[in-house]
Nucleic acid binder design. Structure first.
Lengths: 224, 224
DNA sequence: GAGATCAATATTGTCGACAATATTATTAAT
DNA sequence: ATTAATAATATTGTCGACAATATTGATCTC
């Protein structure tokens, strides 16, 4: 009667703990810069310390947590320079993605892109701030999936939570803070077009604009 | 009398285990594709399973190990497509590094570059294959350090062990397999010059050549 | 009263044992 | 003899306890 190795048990407690802890960080439930007490967090998530520690390692690798041996693990702090690095690196990655994927575009994938943009516009119209963040990231996922480059995709998947972190903090600060409705119009237009260089050049602008938007709230919040 | 928090205990057993295990993989002591039995490896390294597991997670994140939940952890396999991805991604990263660092070059850093190249030539002359691998990687470290971009550097540090892995396997296959003595002459010349575009274009060729060299042995070894 | 020295507490690092799952060996049925 | 079902074994996942280190608090000296 058991499903046996039909479903080969892909879910470990460690993985679920990883997910839930990331959620807690991205929600802002755990405040940036604060120390994470293993016993306390383990109790809150109802897992053992060993399991929690395994989950935390991956978040430390990504950069959402910072681990100091024997000293403790801290939530990443908001920092202007870090944010700039995230964006400049992201720009480079996304340019790579478009270069790798440019010739792989077809009607199906372009229709997919169109859909992702429409979903983004929808969430913005609905005033669903969190949904808009997720929808924007999902829109940008497109080029990485298109590229068919697993290392590139992995790298983006590692970077994404950090972006999401800043987005969430931004959103938490002033609560009308998501992307603008027409912010991706040019992006989509060029992605559908046939001029790669123009697309790459636009990416710089697009990212710069995104950085400005996200960066703005850092002045008001943390003076350092 | 105790040094106290003068030296804030940066060394954990987990970290040393991580290093040693990576060493074992890169030496080819643990054969590609083979399964890693936790009890066995833990005994060999004289650490507990919990400690070993924490060390393995980081190696899995990098890609040197592949973890299947409840099934086990395996040494990465040699694969032609993977190697191509490593190289194409590396090309993109290194182009980024040169773009970020181009204006930061000065006499000191260029002298540093020169020294790294000389050391590489020296190890090649000495027929020190392993040393040559390390020296070549260290030469390429230069541009990432120059860029001053921590995310970019991190990304390179993650990719590097995988390259080293293929280099080591190559070297193990036919044992005269390191980089050629003059392979970096053009690279150095352009890095010292004032034409970024030319440098970037050369990078493509340089990497393509490196790929060809490293890739060659895959045919003879593993047919798949 | 400020600063240093040492004890007490809290927190992280490491370990060995148990539980859950997968793999292998055995048996039974056709 | 081949395949399916089941028992036995091996391996990974998870836990609670102990050891090592850091942090806090108290005591002492000047």
């Amino acid at each position: 009667m058991k499903s046996q190795n039909q479903t080969p048990s892909t879910d470990t407690l460690k993985d679920r703990t990883h997910e839930r802890l990331q959620e807690l960080i991205l929600t802002g439930d755990l405040v940036p810069g604060s120390k994470l007490l293993e016993t306390q967090v383990a109790a809150r998530l109802d897992v053992s310390r060993a399991t929690l520690r395994e989950a935390m390692i991956r978040l430390s690798e990504i950069g959402l947590l910072v681990n100091l041996p024997f000293r403790g693990t801290y939530i990443r702090k908001l920092d202007r320079v870090d944010l700039q690095e995230i964006y400049s690196f992201r720009t480079g990655l996304e340019k790579m993605a478009f270069q790798f994927g440019w010739d792989k575009r077809d009607l199906i994938s372009l229709a997919d892109l169109q859909m992702r943009n429409e979903r983004l516009c929808q969430t913005i119209s609905d005033n669903d701030a969190f949904g808009a963040i997720m929808a924007e990231l999902h829109l940008h996922d497109w080029c990485y999936e298109l590229s068919g480059h697993s290392l590139l995709l992995q790298s983006w998947e590692r970077l994404k939570p950090n972006l999401q972190f800043y987005f969430a903090m931004h959103q938490k600060a002033h609560d009308r803070a998501g992307p603008l409705r027409e912010s991706h119009d040019e992006y989509i237009r060029l992605a559908k077009g046939d001029n790669l260089d123009e697309m790459l050049r636009h990416l710089e602008d697009h990212m710069q604009q995104g950085l400005q938007n996200t960066q703005s709230f850092l002045d008001t919040t943390s003076p350092g």
